[in-house]
Amino acid sequence: MPIADRPESWPVVSTEDIHRDDWVVALRADAVRRPGDDGTGEGAPFRRLVLEHPGAAIILAVDDEGQVLCLQQYRHPARMSFVELPAGICDVPGEDPIEVAKRELREEVELAADEWVHLGSVWASPGISAERHHLYFARGLTPSSRGDFELHGEEAEMEVFRAPFEELHAAVLDGRVSDAPIALALLMARAKGLA
Rank of each mutant, 00 (worst) to 15 (best):
M1W: 00
P7D: 03
W10C: 09
P11K: 04
V13G: 13
S14E: 15
S14M: 08
D17K: 08
I18Q: 15
V24K: 07
V25W: 09
A26P: 09
A26I: 02
L27S: 06
D30I: 07
A31C: 12
V32M: 12
G36Q: 03
G36T: 03
D37C: 02
D38H: 13
G39W: 11
T40I: 01
T40L: 02
G41F: 14
A44M: 04
R47C: 07
L49R: 02
L51E: 12
P54S: 08
G55P: 02
A57V: 13
I58Y: 09
L60D: 00
L60C: 02
L60H: 01
A61T: 09
A61Q: 07
V62F: 00
D64L: 03
D64G: 05
D64F: 03
G66Y: 04
G66T: 07
C70T: 09
L71N: 04
L71H: 08
Q73V: 14
Y74L: 12
R75V: 13
S81Y: 04
F82H: 01
F82A: 01
V83C: 14
E84S: 06
L85C: 11
L85E: 11
A87G: 10
V92E: 13
E95V: 08
I98F: 06
A101E: 03
E104T: 10
R106Q: 10
R106W: 04
R106T: 04
R106F: 06
L111M: 15
A112D: 06
S121E: 00
P126W: 06
G127T: 00
S129K: 07
A130E: 01
H133S: 08
L135P: 10
Y136L: 12
A138H: 11
R139C: 15
T142Q: 10
P143I: 10
P143A: 12
S145L: 11
S145M: 09
R146D: 04
R146I: 05
E150Y: 04
E154A: 15
E157T: 13
E159A: 11
R162Y: 12
P164Y: 06
F165M: 03
A171P: 04
V172L: 05
V172M: 03
L173G: 04
D174N: 01
V177E: 01
D179F: 01
A180T: 00
I182P: 15
I182Q: 10
A183G: 01
L184S: 00
A185G: 01
A185N: 01
L186H: 05
A189I: 08
A189F: 11
R190D: 15
A191V: 03
K192G: 05
G193F: 13
L194W: 09
A195S: 13
